[in-house]
Design a protein around this nucleic acid. Structure first.
Lengths: 363, 363
DNA sequence: GAATGGTGTGAAACCGGTTTCCTATGTGGT
DNA sequence: ACCACATAGGAAACCGGTTTCACACCATTC
């Protein structure tokens, strides 16, 4: 089993196209044409068979690095996320993989840990590695940097975090509408004093969620009480909210992590959810369903965002590689609609659908 | 379409080493030596400056694909996991990234979705892409396949799922001891009728967890009642266990996913945890802390496993690339100790430590 | 019988780097 | 004056593929 490579190659070394050529008694060129498959080269069927046999005998598989150098494409796309341990991103990555499914693409992954320096380093690294395209699901860059990135010869799609830029293809969810849905649902339950626990305002999606909250409240003629908009540490913020002279009966929380902390806070204080306080979160991280009452939440469609981003990117790459030379289409902005997933924390008795259960095996 | 004036390449095309050489008035060779940095080549400081300036002017960054072809190493390591949406694996990946931290390595990621065919395809794809090493955190391969893989010239580390093989470097946790800890903890609470809800027996770690359970019970003189070992759908299994003539007062569940379903089952039936039934899980998926009572669980150290796997792999690669030719060291097996994380589902009043809270930002 | 065109194959250039020689020059020692 | 050696840099081969182009060999067609 040791010496399976007759062409005098040391064990463990993989066969090259030259080895195959030698074994089949043809030239490298012919083997390469055989490998290419699609193009209409003429190869005698007898030659074809000899090459196939040599490939089989030598266990030959083409070196993708060499192919990449020659073809100027690597069939690799880079995915840069903010934090791999944040369940949102694996879900997004799964969407990317799903969309890229059958194709030959492989994913080069990087996690920035929210550090701009790391993000920049990852982008550099991926460009040097000649990824065919880049999906950025963590953008701390400013417009100038994005612009410089777009000027390179790789296609870039900004996913989910996307700046409000029109410089590059972008796939986001409609945070504003999602927030409105959440608040309107609470209004539908008869709540009038609805608070908002906001996320850091320097992150674009959070700004839209605040705005959606404000719009929904204004539409109901309930705007104006800025004391109802809190932020920062959930427990402290909730304490402040609940000690208002006219405390809220419901709270729309900017994301599920904070919403879960709110639920724990309530559990600790003996505050009954949803009877005393209704809670709606954002993201629909699947653990929400485990959180005692079942957290009603706006699904931020991580998987769909990833899928769509990959589709857009694949389209760009296809266009770029197409023979027909043409001006690139202008950047495309896709806005996906989030979806309110109703469980019990909002006060609905319907409770959660059972098909909600994730069918994932741990371990 | 070929550009015959390489010194003035179209916008968007990245500069090559030849462009730099031309701009600096030296040869490719000299530029390459300049880039190499470390080796003791002689370059006049004046030349050095001219090259540096040219690089700066042209925004040159070496093409990692070309370097890969020439150097026969890509500074890329492949990571194959079973399912990216299973929180265990992102944690493991984070460990890998942590360990690889400062180095120049980039991760090529693949998720098998538990499908052996996909696993095989991913391995092939990564080998063709000439990863320097491979971390397999999803191994459905048998020994023969592992053996064939190890015979190639890439280094492989099996992580976490590892077969009981000594063919390749392996990093696992001591599932047997972890299970014993869980059961012994329950014994310490005075439980005598302790059930085990087991995972699929074709997955190695689950077999050890069953065995750990059996050993702990036997050591306490409580072995022999095979009716206490259940498997399959948690709700059904629990129903069966609780309708035994002499039902268990505690259950050790093979992983947290199933344990959480057990908790939900109990909540649905009005069974009080831990008073009527104590529950201990395995994995310490962080959502366990949210699950109402707080799930006591054996931490399976995903991050540490990833970190260690990366360290072992990096060591292998270093050894392989070392100038001194020597026989490779025999495969190394690292066994990490899991840790029982006590919350409330086991009956401890101490409750959970507060520093347990994950400091992760969602979105 | 020459021109045409479809088949089938290989030599060589190229992708963008690295590395191994080889040459050239100055400089100090003898 | 000669040699050794440190310093400096370039030509060319190489990594393992792809693609262009030239050529050879048929079979038709005019």
């Amino acid at each position: 089993m040791r010496n399976r490579f007759p062409s005098s190659r040391p064990a463990g070394q993989r066969a090259t196209i030259s080895d195959v050529a030698a074994a089949a008694g043809v030239s490298k060129a012919t083997v390469s044409k055989f490998l290419g498959g699609n193009k209409n080269y003429y190869i005698a069927s007898e030659t074809r068979e000899r090459i196939a046999k040599a490939i089989e005998d030598l266990q030959f598989a083409p070196n993708a690095i060499a192919q990449g150098l020659s073809n100027r494409r690597t069939d690799t796309i880079g995915v840069i996320v903010a934090s791999i341990t944040n369940p949102f991103y694996p879900e997004l990555i799964a969407g990317v993989e799903e969309a890229l499914g059958g194709s030959e693409y492989t994913l080069l992954l990087g996690s920035t840990d929210e550090q701009p320096a790391k993000e920049a380093a990852l982008v550099r690294s991926m460009l040097q590695r000649r990824v065919d395209g880049l999906i950025m699901a963590a953008v701390t860059m400013d417009d100038a940097e994005v612009s410089r990135l777009v000027d390179t010869d790789v296609d870039v799609v900004l996913a989910s975090r996307g700046l409000d830029t029109t410089l590059a293809d972008t796939v986001v969810i409609d945070n504003l509408t999602g927030a409105r849905q959440a608040v309107e649902h609470l209004l539908g339950h008869g709540h009038r004093r609805i608070a908002h626990l906001a996320g850091p305002a320097d992150v674009v999606p959070f700004r839209y969620r605040i705005e959606g909250y404000r719009e929904a409240m204004a539409d109901a003629g309930l705007d104006g009480d800025e004391r109802l908009v809190a932020s920062g540490n959930p427990a402290e913020a909730m304490t402040a909210l609940l000690t208002l002279p006219d405390p809220p009966t419901a709270v729309f929380v900017a994301n599920d992590r904070m919403a879960i902390e709110v639920l724990e806070f309530c559990a600790g204080r003996g505050i009954e959810v949803p009877q005393e306080l209704a809670v709606v979160g954002f993201d629909n991280v699947w653990v929400g369903r485990l959180s005692g009452v079942g957290l009603t939440s706006v699904d931020s469609k991580a998987r769909a965002v990833g899928r769509k981003a990959a589709e857009v990117l694949a389209g760009r790459i296809r266009a770029r590689h197409a023979d027909t030379v043409q001006l690139p289409a202008p950047p495309e902005r896709t806005v996906l609609q989030p979806e309110l997933v109703i469980r019990r924390s909002c006060g609905c008795v319907a409770g959660e659908k059972d098909d909600d259960a994730p069918d994932r095996s741990f371990f």
